[in-house]
Every structure is written in structure tokens, then in C-alpha cells.
Design a protein around this nucleic acid. Structure first.
Lengths: 343, 343
DNA sequence: TTGTAGGCGTTATCAC
DNA sequence: GTGATAACGCCTACAA
């Protein structure tokens, strides 16, 4: 592979100093128009491009931002949710001239890229941060490295985060079901023990109380956030003979799994059971019956997260953001009809 | 932000030469075990990490590979197809220790990253390469830069490509329809003029002949590869009164659009019209009726593309690959039933 | 086994 | 306006 041309090559062929050439290429106002043109012409001819590493070394910034989407967390790309997020982030990053360095490692090294100077700022999925990661990340944050968490991160982490108001989302779902007359609502939650799941479970419990719905521990089933997981959870509910006339799933995939099982079991949706998904991914609209789902403004979230990071990198101070969710009502929810199972 | 520790810092605090420290950290066999431990201990204590830019500068490699998924081409992330691809690529990249630099710019600069030394190799979506890009890319390839195209690239480009056998895919779809007794099959193709679409149109035409199906120019409608585009195309077909009993869509989204319109129009699928999608994305299984679709081994494609790139970077010679497609039969195709429209 | 002395390609700081 | 020169942080001969 032929050597790439460098500033030195240009300067020698032009009989100019390297510094002059460098300035000419970045149109420094103090350079004579004539020489600037000479330099640019040759640069174009040789196909010169400044070396990124050398530039990063002297400027002390890589002009890259990192995005960590650990595969472990919620199947990443298999979940359309992440596509949306990536779309939001990447569109802004592109505009700002910061390519994205992407990691999907199951067990991510949150601090490495930043400390190596590989990236100037970092976007992380808050839900993928474990308690074990907190001390390292906190040290980094205290040292002033720009980091933004997407979705809520552990409380102990002093990080700027950008997310949606999940509590309100859960309540919107419950309010809708209550208005339809439902009283026994199941929750197919996320993996037991994940902060993320716990948060929604808390929201669910308090919502039950607020809306005067029945609280019953057997209505709460954990899943692994996949379609199969949703199916398994729903099956468990049915096999145990737990009466319920509506269910809220942790995401649209889980809801689809539940739909599969309800169909198998001959329970009509929404005739006998109402189903609500979460995230309002493209799958929701395609499903049959089309899913009522709690929309998170995912793409917007990605955009806002990137903008926040950029501001942090510019030394501005930035506050965390919580966007509103919205219940998108489709065909999978309907009025409560007293019948066989539910009392 | 506190200065990051460097080799110099370590060496001074240890009373060693920078080179010794450097070697110790990369466990050079020629370093005394004792000093190695001393060095590592301090490095750990200070949280030392070698600076990526400096390392890239001396080693002449960035340890990064680029992936260009131009937004313009087929809606990128909105299409689950790309999620799969990204999943394949990133899983391999992760293993190999090469973070991915991602570009989604609508008008990508294919050669920039490579010439800046920002990446050591490049994965591009073949379908996004325009004829205008060819000369620049060819120069790069001749200079020995490692590039792999995913899916077929322009003929004129001497690039290694990894794709699936789309021709065979189209033929599989046609064979299936022929066996079911269909004679008039429509094609909702990709954007007029895209190489990609032209390729499939050619495959379609030759397939019609091979399987003895009716060739009729009015059965060929271009779309923009979106759900709305599919709907529009199908609507056009119906409004023009073109008789058809089956259709093949350019991708699953387009097929969904067609499904929407057929339902509106009161044409039963698969009773009156059979529909076949392309790509077998997760949407296909969720649709109702579930879509028969031509599966491309998309994730595998991503893996293979990355592996090929790695081999190229290692100086090995690599051949292009064409993987087999597979027709996944679901509910949207059925036997031809003579009736109203189709002769 | 360790140290010395460049060099990687760019930018920034002085001079001229 | 332009030219030397010294960083930036690491690596690799070559010495010792």
C-alpha cells in the first residue's frame, strides 16, 4: 500500500514550511491567497488528508463520540427500539461532525475509551450500568469527562440522564384500562432484579392504588423481555389459573408473545383480555390485533442525548431530561366484559 | 479535567525509562518479572491507559473499522434488515477487538476515513455506492486499502463483496407461486434506476420465462421501499385494473403496505391474492396474515463481511461470497383460485 | 535486562 | 506572511 502523503511531502514539493502548509489548508486568514491556492491545488492532486491520529494527538481530542449499547441489555438490535435510538443519535452526530464509535460488547468497559482518548464523550444506556460499574464511572465523572446516560442510571451515579417518564407511562396504561372497566390487571415485567423492572413495578403498584385496581402479587410475572419470554409468562399466568382481564407488557415483543399464547388459549383480544405494550415500536402497528402501546419518544431521546453530550463537551452545564410518554390506543384494548375467568 | 497519566509519569515515579515501562505493560518477555509487577501495580493505581492516538500514530493502525450505512439507502435503521446486519458485524468486530466507527451520512465520503487513517478497513453497503463514487473507490482499492462491500456493488468496482443470491431468491418465490398455480405475478420493485432494483427486475423477467408465467410490463411497479410506497404501488396496480393473483414485494415493509391496500380493497390474502415479501425480517412473522418471505441470511452476511475484511487487513486474498436465500412459507401465499379479476 | 534516541504527522509558539 | 522548533504520547531500533 503506497504511503499516504503527509504535510512534509507537500511542503517539500512546494518549497514551503510544514507549518505554512498546515495553515493554508485550514485557511488561516494570515496566509497569502496565492500560496493558499498553490497548497490546496497540490493537496487535491495528491489526495492529501490530514492524519487523524496525529491531529488527535496534538489537539487532544478525537472528534469522535462513543455509544455503548451492550448486547446483554434487552437484545439490543433485535429490539426495534434500539434502531430508533440509534437513528436519533446518529443523525445528530452526523450533523455535528462526530462519527460514532459503537460498542455492543456484552460486558462493556465504560471508562476505557474515554481514558484512552479514543472518544471525547460517551453515551451509555443507563439500564446497562450495574452497581459494580458505578465507582469507576463516578471517578470519571468527577474528573470531568462528558458522559450522558440514556434512561435512568443507578441513583448513586452523578450522571446527566435523558429518559422518558416511565412512571407516567405505566399510569397512562392503567388509567386507560380502568376507564374501560378493568379491575384485575397483570404486569409482565422485565427481568427480576433489574432496576429498570423494579422501577416499573413500583409505578405499577402505586398506580393500582391510585386508580383503585386490585393489587394481587400473583398478577406480577417477570419476563426476559423477549417474545418467547412474554409467551412463557402469559402461559404461566393462565396455567396458575390467575384471573385477569387485562395485561401490561414490558415491551412490544413481550406483548406479542402474550398475544400468541392468548390466541392458543382461545382467549379473545380485546374481547376477553386487553393487552398493552410498551415502546410503540413498528411491530405494534403490524401486530394483529394492532397493539395499544405506551410510546416513548425514542428517536427524540437519542437526539436530545447527543445534544446534551455536545453541550457537556463544550463545558456547558446540562440538566437531566425526562420526556413525556404517550399512550397510543389501537385494537388490543377494549371494554371489560364480565365472563368466564375474571370475577 | 485532570491530566491523564502517561508513560512519562509512570517512568518518572518508578525511576525507569519510558521504553521499559512500555514494554512491561505489553508483557514483553525480556522484562524482569519483578519490574513488570512494579509497573503494573502503579499503572493500575493511577488508572493508566495508553493513549489511542499516540499508539495509532506509531503503529500506523487505528484498530478501528468503519461501517457505512447511508441513511438514504433504504431507510437504514427503520428497516429491521439493517439491525440484523449491524448485529452480525458488530458481534464479530467486538470479538476481534475492533470497535466500529459508524456513518449514516446521507451522502457518505467513502474514502475519507481510510485516507485519514481513522479506520484500518471499511465495510460499505454495496447498494449505496453510486457510479460517481466508483473512480475514487477504485483508486483506493488499487492502493491496497481493505474494503468489503455488503451486497453487490457496481460492476466497475473491483471490490470484494459479500451478498446473497438474490436472483435465486426471486426464482424461489416464482417457483413457489407457479406450483400454487398462479400465472400473473406482479413485482413491486425497488426505486426505478437503482442497480439493486434493476437486478431483481432482470431476475424476475428471466424467472417468468423459466417458469412459464405471463410477462406483462404493467405488472411491474417501482416503489420507494417503504410501507407507504408499497401501499401506493399496490393501489396503482388495482386502480389501473391490472389483473394479478400474486405479488412479490421488494422487502417486507413494501409487502405490508400491499397487505394494507389489499385489505382495504376487500381482496382476501391468500384467498384471492398471494403476497411474498423479501428479507424475512421480524415483521414478516408478526404480520397478519404472516408473510411468506425470501430470507436472506442477513446476520450471517454481516459476520462474513467482517471476517472477510479482517482477512483483507491481514494481507490475505479474499474471494467474494454469495450466500443462498431461502423461501420461508407462511400464511400469505396459497393456491390460485380462478375468480373475479385474474384470468 | 534496561536505557537512549529518534520518529510517527500534526499543531502551536515563537521568531523573522 | 512565513519559517524554525518544540511539543503531543507512544514505539522501536540500537546501545549499554
Amino acid at each position: 500500500m503506497r504511503r499516504k502523503p503527509t504535510l512534509k511531502d507537500l511542503s517539500e514539493r512546494l518549497g514551503l514550511a510544514r507549518s505554512t502548509v498546515s495553515r493554508a489548508l485550514r485557511d488561516d486568514p494570515q496566509i497569502a491567497a496565492a500560496t493558499r491556492e498553490r497548497v490546496r491545488a497540490l493537496a487535491a492532486e495528491l489526495g492529501y488528508r490530514p492524519n487523524a491520529a496525529a491531529r488527535a494527538l496534538t489537539r487532544r481530542r478525537a472528534q469522535v463520540v462513543g455509544l455503548m449499547l451492550p448486547r446483554s441489555s434487552a437484545l439490543v438490535f433485535a429490539n426495534p427500539y434500539f434502531s430508533e435510538l440509534l437513528l436519533g443519535v446518529s443523525s445528530r452526530a452526523e450533523q455535528a461532525g462526530f462519527p460514532l464509535l459503537l460498542s455492543t460488547a456484552p460486558d462493556p468497559d465504560f471508562t476505557g475509551w474515554l481514558r484512552e482518548g479514543r472518544v471525547d464523550g460517551l453515551l451509555v444506556l443507563g439500564s446497562s450500568i450495574t452497581d459494580a460499574d458505578v465507582p469507576g464511572l463516578n471517578r470519571l465523572l468527577e474528573a470531568g469527562y462528558p458522559v450522558v446516560a440514556i434512561h435512568a442510571a443507578p441513583r448513586a451515579l452523578q450522571v446527566v440522564s435523558v429518559g422518558s417518564n416511565e412512571r407516567a407511562g405505566v399510569w397512562q396504561a392503567l388509567a386507560h384500562l380502568q376507564q374501560l372497566g378493568h379491575r384485575r390487571v397483570a404486569l409482565l415485567s422485565g427481568p427480576r432484579g433489574s432496576r429498570y423492572a423494579e422501577r416499573r413495578i413500583r409505578a405499577f403498584r402505586s398506580g393500582l392504588e391510585t386508580y383503585g385496581l386490585e393489587a394481587d402479587a400473583s398478577l406480577l410475572v417477570p419476563t426476559d423481555d423477549s417474545r418467547e419470554g412474554g409467551a412463557a409468562a402469559c402461559r404461566r399466568l393462565i396455567e396458575r389459573g390467575v384471573p385477569f382481564s387485562a395485561l401490561i407488557a414490558d415491551n412490544d415483543l413481550v406483548a406479542l408473545g402474550a398475544l400468541d399464547v392468548l390466541r392458543e388459549a382461545g382467549r379473545c383480544v380485546p374481547g376477553e383480555v386487553s393487552v398493552i405494550g410498551f415502546d410503540d415500536t413498528p411491530l405494534a402497528a403490524v401486530a394483529s390485533p394492532a397493539l395499544t402501546s405506551v410510546r416513548q419518544p425514542t428517536r427524540r431521546l437519542g437526539e436530545i442525548a447527543f445534544d446534551a453530550l455536545l453541550a457537556l463537551m463544550a463545558g456547558e452545564s446540562v440538566a437531566s431530561v425526562r420526556l413525556a410518554t404517550q399512550l397510543v390506543v389501537r385494537e388490543s384494548t377494549g371494554p371489560y366484559v364480565p365472563s368466564g375467568g375474571a370475577p
